[in-house]
Amino acid sequence: MTWKHICAATELPEGEPVGFKIGDQRIALYKIDDEIFATDDVCSHAFALLSTGFLEGHLVECPLHGAMFDVRDGRCRSGAYKDVRAFKVEIRDREVYVHLDGGPASEDVRDNVTDATP
């Protein structure tokens, strides 16, 4: 259960998903109307990164087969693909922190707060 520092809030472009790697976990961040959301970056279907997808409103579209996920809760809009995980986001001093809960990749992190690489 760790909050991880990801980047400065100003680094995130409005309406464009951005992918980050934290250890071997990949997450995607989305800034929508100045609010920031985070989900798994890898699509629940095959291997594609949602951060290379298209954001429309709160839905991100997977570039490969078009699955649409609501970035607020990770829910897949279609019956055919499973949901992805959505993570809690906090802004402290204009820096973005994401709460990575339960993901196997977060276990090997020793510090309470680690930096992510884009």
């Binding site: 594609a48 290379t52 997808g53 298209f54 579209e61 570039p63 490969l64």
Partner: peptide
């Protein structure tokens, strides 16, 4: 080139 596809659809 999946990126082109998403734009072309729109």
């Amino acid at each position: 080139r999946p990126g082109d596809q998403m734009v072309a659809r729109r």
